[in-house]
Every structure is written in structure tokens, then in C-alpha cells.
Design a protein around this nucleic acid. Structure first.
Lengths: 186, 186
DNA sequence: TCGGTTTGTTCGGATTGACGAACACTCGCA
DNA sequence: TGCGAGTGTTCGTCAATCCGAACAAACCGA
């Protein structure tokens, strides 16, 4: 499910002004760098108008900001989840527990999991959405991780990234294996 | 530095068609859902034209994909970084090592680090860009992590998230403390 | 107080995106 | 073979963006 909050125009207006002020630039200067008329920028910041992609792209270059930053807002707070706590993701194997630490909030596109696994059965995953990348850092134990055809053996501290839109595995090789998994859908 | 590859129009054209085919929808059907003329969509997929933000937004809703997916591409590969390896981020304290595991690729907005620290001195960080959130999962040892005013003590397996645009700390309380840090700038 | 510079605004005119209908085309079925 | 429903395309028209220049207001040094 892709998130689609409010109409983007108001967000864009706010973002443009916010990023411009953050960079300490004048409206005139930004318009010059983006090679657009400053009148256009003025109206965009006023929330009027519906910029073309080229115009907005030029602005994202001028402000040196990722494009998406202009169309999507922001927020945060402190949050703690203790080792035992947190929603455990259902699994067909009792010896594999994935705990969701941070689910994809409005407009970041990644989930963070804590993985606990015991040796024995390999945990195979069907391909996810195209464009998903998974990152695993092994904390404890030993595990075979990666795409099913060519998994990698990880020891504590090792890191691996692999495309999540292909079949992949997580197989613990030692008891008490524990890892951090970041699943991002770019 | 924000990434700004090629002109976005060709990318958009490709993305629109790719996502539409992935969803198994006809051009007519997508146009109907997005409430835009199918002629418009046809021309956009042909790489002609420079859609307005509202038009593109409507399409992202109709296709149920995040907006940014339409303007920025990407692709992955398997990558491994062993426990000892990887670029270590400079630090004024020798007893604190941050290894960059995955730097913000085109259009994900997060970095992943492995942190190794020894007790003694606290590692204080100045605020980063506004909108940054940091996620820490402790792997080994014990540490005091979070915003400087109100840090949280973590034990193995614990997780904490906090705004990175305020001063924050990472202080190891035991030898051989080891953690995973995800820094995302939303 | 005056000139000079910079701020962001508003105003016609040329350019261009978005629309809807008509178009050529393929497929399934009687 | 003809019909109908589906595909994605091209065309002319209207409305909108985008532009450049002219604009008022704030600021600063002489």
C-alpha cells in the first residue's frame, strides 16, 4: 500500500519555502539557479499553481534536495522497544521470530526488524514487491543469508544486502542467532 | 549532496509503463482510475510532455505506488561487508568506530552503520539536518543512547529511535559494545 | 534624505499541457 | 466474414503554466 496523504500542492508550497529558508537563499537566487522565472517560484510558494515536473525538478537541483523531499512532509519522536517486546511477525516456524521495530512510517519506505532464529530449518521468503532491497547485519551466532541461489554465510558483525524481489533465505547455523534486518522498498 | 541523475521525463515515461504493466492494467483503465485523459497518459508513456504534479500524483495513486517511484529509478545487487572491513567513519575518539555499511543510494534516504564502542567517553553528536531520525538496535554489550537530555539504556536486542536533528549520544557501558544504526533523513 | 540594491509581488502574452473525440488496430465469437 | 469490445494512437481546442518586465516595499550606506 503506497501512502498518499493530502494533496501535494500545499505540501510542495511549504517544502519549497522551508528548504529555501534552510539554505538561506533568496527567492531571486533560487529562481536564478533553477533557471525559472522568479514569478513562477513566487506563485508556487504561495500555493498557487501546479508545477510541471521539469520545473519542480529544476528546483530540487537548485535547492540540492532530493526530489521526493519536496512532495512529502515529515515528523519524529523517541521510541524504545525492549528485547522481549514488540509485535512479533507471524511465522510458520516457531524457531524464527521477526519483531517489527519500526514500520514504514508515512513516507519513509523501509521497515526495521529484529530477527531471532534457531538452527534447523531455513526460513525461505517469497519475492516481495519489485524494488525491495533487504539489508542484514548479524549480531550473534552464524547464519546463511541472501538470495536462495547464492546465500552468504555471516558471522557477527557481517553485513549483506540483496534484492528482496527474488526468493531469499535466512537460515541460522548456530543457536541464539540474532540479526537486524532493514527492508526498504525504494 | 542530493542525487540528480538524468532528466526525469524519460524516467517517468519508463516508470509509468513499467508500473502499469506490473499491475496488469490497461492504459484505458489507469487513465480512468486517475481521472485523466488516456491521451495524456499515452503521450506521457511515449516520453512526450512534461506532466504537472497533480497529473503525476493522480497516476501514483491510481497505480498505488509511492510518488517518488515514478520519478527516480534504481536497481540492486548482492553486497557483503565483513566484520573487519568497510569504510570506517572518522571519529575523534579511538574507542568509537562507525562503519558505513550502506550509504544512501539514489533515492533511498538512509544510511546504515555498524557501531563498535568501548566504555569511557560518551560519543556526542551535533544535530544533523532537520528531519533526520536515527534507529539503533543494540547487538552486544550495554549502552546509553538517545537524545542528550534523556538517553535510554539499551541491552542486547533493545531498540530505540530518536530525532537526529537534536543533540544525541552513544555511550558504551560495557567493553565490546556493538550496535546497528540506521540514520534516515526523511 | 537620497540613491542604490535587494526583497517578493503582480500583470499581459507566448508556450504547452490536458482534454475528448475520432482514429487504426487486434482479438474473441457467432 | 462480420460484429463488438478491447487495445493504444493521433488530432484540434481550451485552459493553464511559465515567462519577462514592471511593480511596491524594505534595507543600507553615503
Amino acid at each position: 500500500m503506497a501512502e498518499h496523504d493530502g494533496a501535494p500542492l500545499a505540501v510542495i508550497a511549504a517544502s519549497l519555502q522551508r528548504e529555501r529558508h534552510r539554505a538561506g537563499l533568496s527567492l531571486t537566487e533560487v529562481a536564478r539557479r533553477a533557471r525559472i522565472a522568479k514569478s513562477t517560484l513566487s506563485q508556487l510558494e504561495a500555493g498557487q499553481g501546479n508545477p510541471s515536473v521539469e520545473t519542480l525538478w529544476a528546483l530540487s537541483v537548485a535547492l540540492d534536495v532530493p526530489f521526493a523531499r519536496l512532495v512529502e512532509p515529515s515528523r519524529p519522536k523517541v521510541q524504545v522497544i525492549r528485547a522481549g517486546e514488540g509485535p512479533a511477525v507471524a511465522s510458520e516456524h516457531a524457531d524464527y521470530v521477526a519483531t517489527l521495530l519500526s514500520s514504514c512510517p508515512p513516507n519513509a519506505r523501509r521497515d526495521i526488524f529484529r530477527i531471532s532464529a534457531e538452527p534447523g530449518t531455513a526460513r525461505r521468503s517469497e519475492p516481495h514487491m519489485p524494488g525491495v532491497v533487504e539489508h542484514v547485519v548479524l549480531s550473534q551466532g552464524r547464519a546463511l543469508v541472501g538470495v536462495t541461489d547464492d546465500p552468504v554465510e555471516l558471522k557477527p558483525g557481517d553485513y549483506v544486502a540483496y534484492p528482496g524481489d527474488a526468493p531469499h533465505v535466512f537460515e541460522a547455523l548456530e543457536p541464539d542467532t540474532f540479526a537486524v534486518l532493514v527492508s526498504e522498498h525504494v
